[in-house]
């Protein structure tokens, strides 16, 4: 239990009187890829935010990368967590290159590596284009490039394939393969369980904030 990448015990999350997560117990072992499927509003994004240490559980307990959730120690593992959600979070007025270089600088990664990663996702030719002039798919690829560059130990992908064409599939595969190979872990969430089945070791279903196979 102590070696699990993620270990949640009876975790619940309530906000403004609304119960979003109820008694979630799950473990993610090193090298494992977990899928979480569920309909809209099931609490998938909230679950990822809890695992990413961005939200503290209101009940239960858990550890992520060895750090206890809801304690100051949890903040220390944040740079080892890679989260990609619905919104790529690019700065519209900055170019794709400037966006990824900004993250690189803050993460202490050489800018050359940032440029290389942009090339890896096939966007070297659009590096000097402002984000606001790029399609959502291109912006999503930059977000995936960010994760490739940061090499997180724990990968959290929220509807990773949304807005991406088939040419982006190898990027997601590369991210997952790296996590497996380095003994990290990955959690992929989607409303479509069939999309998760091919990439994950097991799929859990989340309905109304509660897990059930």
């Amino acid at each position: 239990m102590g070696d699990a990448v993620v270990d949640l015990q009876e975790v619940g999350y309530v906000v403004a009187g609304v119960t979003v997560l109820t008694s979630i117990t799950l473990q993610l072992e090193p090298g494992e890829v977990l899928g979480v499927a569920g309909p809209n509003g099931a609490g998938k994004t909230t679950l990822l935010s809890v695992v990413a240490t961005l939200l503290a559980p209101t009940t239960g307990s858990g550890t992520v990368l060895g750090a206890t959730l809801g304690t100051p120690g949890a903040k220390a593992v944040r740079p080892r967590i890679g989260l990609s959600g619905h919104d790529p979070g690019l700065y519209a007025d900055l170019t794709l290159s400037e966006n990824i270089r900004l993250w690189a600088r803050l993460a202490g990664v050489p800018e050359r590596a940032a440029d290389d990663t942009l090339a890896r996702v096939g966007l070297a030719g659009a590096a000097d284009r402002r984000a606001e002039r790029c399609s959502n798919g291109m912006q999503r690829r930059v977000d995936l490039a960010r994760l490739l560059m940061l090499e997180p130990s724990l990968l959290l992908l929220d509807e990773a394939q949304a807005g991406l064409d088939n040419s982006s599939e190898p990027i997601i595969d590369a991210l997952i393969d790296r996590c497996r190979a380095t003994g990290g872990g990955a959690i992929l969430v989607s409303h479509d369980a069939s999309r998760l089945a091919t990439r994950t070791d097991r799929v859990e279903t989340l309905v109304d904030g509660a897990l059930g196979r």
Binding site: A52, G82, D87, W103
Partner: peptide, 18 residues
């Protein structure tokens, strides 16, 4: 407006340890 960060951008910065 251009000084306003989206929730996702703030999350990115938090996870980068800023």
């Amino acid at each position: 407006n251009s000084a306003t960060e989206s929730p996702t951008q703030r999350r990115h910065l938090l996870l980068l340890g800023v």
